[in-house]
Each structure stands twice: as C-alpha cells, then as structure tokens.
C-alpha cells in the first residue's frame, strides 16, 4: 500500500458517499445515470468474486464488500425507491454497446483463461468505459449540478491516482499489470474533458454547463 493507492481508494469511497448522500438528502437521483450505476454494480460483482477464494487483507476485504454493497444500494435507490425522479428520458445510452465488446475483449486478452480471471479482466475493461452513460447524460442535458460534478471529479480522480500508484509500484516493487494500466489510462482519459470543465467552472463557483 502506498500513498497514491490509499488516496485513490479514499477518493473512490468519497465519490460513492457523495452520490449516496446527494440521492438521500435531495430524495432525488435526477442527473445521475442509472445505466452507469448498473455497470458499476456489474463491475464490482465480477471483479470481487475472489472474495470467495482469496484473502489479501482485512482492508481489501472490507473495501470490496463496501464497493459491492453500495453499488447495489445505489441501483436500488435509483430504480426502486426514488424511481419517480430518475431521468430515464435522458439516460438513453445503450449499455450492451459497452458490455458486449468488453466481454469479447476479456475473452481474447487476459492473463489466464479461467473463469475468475476472465471475469476480473472483463470488470477492468468494463469499468474503464462504465462512466460513458453518465457523461452522455450530462452532455444531453447540457449541465450537471455541482454535487454531481463533485461526484464525477472524485470518481475520475480515483483511477488517475491508481496510475500514479502503478508507476510507483513499477519502480519500487517491479510489479505491473498491463491490462489494468492500459484500462486505467483509457478510464482517466475519458474524464479529461470533464476535469477541464470542473477546474475552470465548478471550482470557481459556477455551474457545470456545456458550451452550446
């Protein structure tokens, strides 16, 4: 564990807390893509299957359980409890366009052709693009609430911090996993446009509004 990974995990945790608090406090999930949240639930479920087979550390187990549980809570809040506030008219990204290609890629490019390993690889590939329905929703409505922007910033920062963690681990531990690194790069690049708008607008107190 190094500082970059710890900050990455904390940033990820903060993102989840921000999202759940936003939905709970405002009793609304307006502006949030349920499609992205479903994809995250799939990502954590398929990645953390190793909870059943491998023990890494108490920290690791705890975080995995939190990530899986909160992803299902979020989906439940959006599709059941606060269904009436869900922006389904704008949340029209077709998730099969992400699930199918990442499934095929995981079958073709993986470290080991076993069920658990292919599912882990699939989850890495899928996570890298899982935010697209959310970014699509923001681009369709042309704006995002500040709280949604903070959520996206924390969520995007997490994999960016992991990239630094991987650079560190490459030099310090001679450890690297190309699949995670390439997917993490893709994931972080997808946020760049948003990061730019966040820094130039939201941090200056303005609402995140896309140029017409």
């Amino acid at each position: 564990m190094n500082i970059f990974r710890l900050l990455g995990d904390l940033s990820h945790l903060v993102a989840i807390i921000i999202l759940l608090l936003k939905i709970w406090k405002t009793r609304s999930c307006a502006g949030i893509s349920g499609k992205s949240q479903i994809l995250f639930a799939i990502v954590y479920t398929t990645r953390y299957l190793d909870l059943l087979t491998t023990y890494v550390s108490a920290y690791n187990t705890f975080m995995k359980i939190i990530f899986i549980a909160t992803s299902y809570v979020t989906v439940f809040l959006m599709y059941v409890k606060f269904k009436a506030t869900y922006d389904h008219n704008h949340d029209t990204f077709r998730i099969e366009f992400l699930i199918l290609p990442t499934s095929v890629l995981a079958l073709l490019i993986n470290n080991e052709f076993t069920i658990v390993e292919v599912l882990w690889t699939f989850s890495i590939y899928l996570e890298s693009v899982a935010i697209l329905p959310q970014l699509f929703l923001v681009s369709k409505t042309g704006e995002a609430e500040s709280i949604t922007s903070h959520y996206l910033f924390a969520l995007g920062s997490y994999r960016g911090l992991y990239l630094l963690n991987w650079v560190y681990r490459y030099y310090a531990e001679d450890h690297y996993d190309l699949i995670a690194i390439v997917a993490g790069l893709v994931q972080t690049i997808l946020y760049c446009d948003f990061f730019y708008l966040y820094i130039t607008k939201v941090l200056k107190g303005k609402k995140l509004q896309l140029p017409a």
Partner: peptide
C-alpha cells in the same frame, strides 16, 4: 513480472 492471478488491488 510473475503472472500471478491474485489481484491485491481494488
């Protein structure tokens, strides 16, 4: 690099 299938990250 060893092709270990244990993933120690989240």
């Amino acid at each position: 690099q060893t092709l270990e299938t244990t993933h120690d990250e989240l």
